[in-house]
Design a protein around this nucleic acid. Structure first.
Lengths: 353, 353
DNA sequence: TTGTACGCGTTATCAA
DNA sequence: TTGATAACGCGTACAA
């Protein structure tokens, strides 16, 4: 009765038709040469006559020979693979990084191995170590690891960190100041004199950097700036920051990231606060969907995708083979003014300045 | 002068301190046994005395021994790795699938290898073949491949397809009808009598399925239904569909996915059309940000993340070792009513029904 | 219970 | 230029 069903299911069994794949031995036999000659012919290094070269290539094509990456990796140690470890795969900002990395890797014939550390430094180290034997290099996106741990990992295989700076380890971090300068100037020009930064995770290198940059800029522009500790870089985190935001006397807020900005805006609006009439909100990153909100979010756009690409190119350049892309595009941030930022509420504030 | 700098840079060179990793030979020597005994002791199978077992484990721990996955993979063919191929990494819907897969894989000690086929069937086949030697199984998310090609791949290693049905190949596809039924009922209850489906890519199996489901439901409910061919499953595609949507005489539109729904809504609003007053829009998937729009998007929620998890579990189950999760949760869709769907514009429509 | 020997598919180092 | 041979690190029959 249900024989067919069973048959249908059975066709999915694992070891079905593994079909011993063709090896250099098969090619060698059919070409009438020694396997090692086949290896040489099919590898780049060519200490082999043009004639046998051709012969071997023909036979290989005919047999549809594909080198076994695993077997090749064992003696050489090279796997044509790079690992990408993100601290929180839940954050849309990383999506673009992943995209960029996957794309750039694919172009150069590399494959991406993806893993998440779930914000745990311990887990991150474990994963990194485990990967080390399997990949040619690893990219750490906003790692939670200590500098020494990262240097430790970098001592064994090429490592590139994104959004972090570690002595002796190549890193990809966009120029924050460009976007921040424009953002602060924008806010100032709208009459805001008192700003606040809604911070990200305490241990986040990037959150500290953003604070420093904003801080420097405000000092320069003679604006008052306070920090609102939040620590949770999510929509929920943004919502939780709302009371503190309302209690503060700042009129413009720059959030550690768009997620927080969106959450904050949602909570504020739900409480009847008008954005940007009552207060202005600026996010960071320009993630997917940040222009869907009402009002659309003003944000300091980060070159997320380009960062992923740059990290891959950096890694691959260190791997030797591929030439370093010359115009290593200066990664920079850029202010995107949308609807969540506007004029400061009370003209009195101007006078106070 | 810049010696330090040079030193700093040099610390990033590839082969630096590769430090021949410890092997079973090292452990064997220190433990005073034969390497093969170490292998047996450290593998699960234990034909070894409790005493030497302990001894070996101690030495292994002391030496911080880690089995080389590559070397292990060569004889066994198992890599503790599964590949995930998505057709378009640009689509946020896949993010959740990736998340789910990565998470479920990590829990069971597997690592995810990610690749994108860029909507190209040819590329997809190439990638799948290439992966085949490197991974234990592969997940195809909304593949563009022909059935026979998929079956071909599935003949060599376990394959699970998401959002597609292929004879003999296990697949993960949520129950569309549940959500569609509710959506159509919802729309009908709001007085809509003439619906339209804004379709996805022509060759998309899922777009066809959604059309069929909606079609069946409308027939059952005695509602008129037309299809608006669009083909581009992106925000831009949705925008392009706007003129056709306006030209149609339907009052409610179900889009192939949220991206299209959002684009359509944007374009419509830009043209001064009120949503949902003039017409209702329902999306599909409930992607991140679909609730950020104004009005927030009504949508038929797909269990994206759960699909990724289910696919991994399915694959791993076929790999033997891990037990099949018993309560293989019935993946289902669910209507999420938000603001983009409302009453039909003209009461006359009700009378006409 | 433990040791021996060989194979996995490829690269790399020698000789020839 | 080509062929023989030894790794690479581990699993696994088979023998002891």
């Amino acid at each position: 009765m249900n024989e067919e069903e069973v048959a249908g299911v059975r066709s999915g069994i694992p070891a079905a038709g593994q079909g011993a794949s063709v090896t250099i031995y098969d090619v060698a036999e059919l070409a009438g040469v020694h396997p090692s000659t086949v290896s040489r012919a099919l590898s780049n290094a060519g200490r082999v006559s043009a004639r046998t070269q051709k012969k071997i290539e023909d036979v290989a094509a005919q047999l549809n020979y594909r080198a076994n990456p695993l077997a090749r990796a064992l003696p050489t140690g090279r796997t044509s693979t790079v690992g990408l470890i993100v601290s929180d795969i839940t954050n849309p900002a990383y999506f673009d990084v992943i995209r960029g990395a996957e794309g750039a890797a694919a172009v150069l014939g590399y494959t991406l191995v993806l893993a998440e550390s779930a914000e745990s430094a311990e887990k991150e180290l474990l994963i990194a170590r485990r990967m080390l034997t399997t990949v040619d290099g690893v990219i750490l996106a906003s790692p939670r690891l200590a500098d020494t741990e990262i240097q430790d990992v970098a001592a064994k295989k090429p490592v590139v960190v994104i959004n972090r700076e570690v002595a002796g380890v190549p890193s990809v971090v966009a120029n924050i100041d460009a976007g921040v300068t424009d953002a602060v100037r924008h806010l100032a020009s709208m009459g805001h004199t008192s700003l606040a930064y809604v911070s990200g995770p305490d241990r986040s290198w990037m959150s500290a950097l953003r604070w420093d940059s904003i801080s420097a800029r405000c000092e320069w522009s003679n604006l008052s700036l306070t920090k609102i500790e939040c620590g949770i870089p999510t929509i929920e985190g943004g919502r939780r920051a709302a009371p503190t935001v309302l209690a503060s006397n700042a009129t413009a807020f720059i959030c550690y990231n768009d997620l927080m900005a969106i959450g904050l805006m949602q909570e504020l609006q739900q409480a009847g606060v008008q954005v940007p009439d009552a207060l202005s909100i600026v996010g960071f990153d320009n993630i997917f969907g940040s222009d869907f909100t009402t009002p659309p979010l003003s944000t300091i756009k980060s070159p997320l995708r380009a960062s992923g690409e740059a990290a891959i190119n950096e890694i691959l350049a260190r791997l030797g083979g591929t030439p370093v892309p010359p115009g290593r595009s200066e990664l920079s941030t850029e202010l995107v003014i949308r609807g969540s930022s506007g004029r400061a509420p009370s003209p009195a504030a101007l006078a106070a300045g």
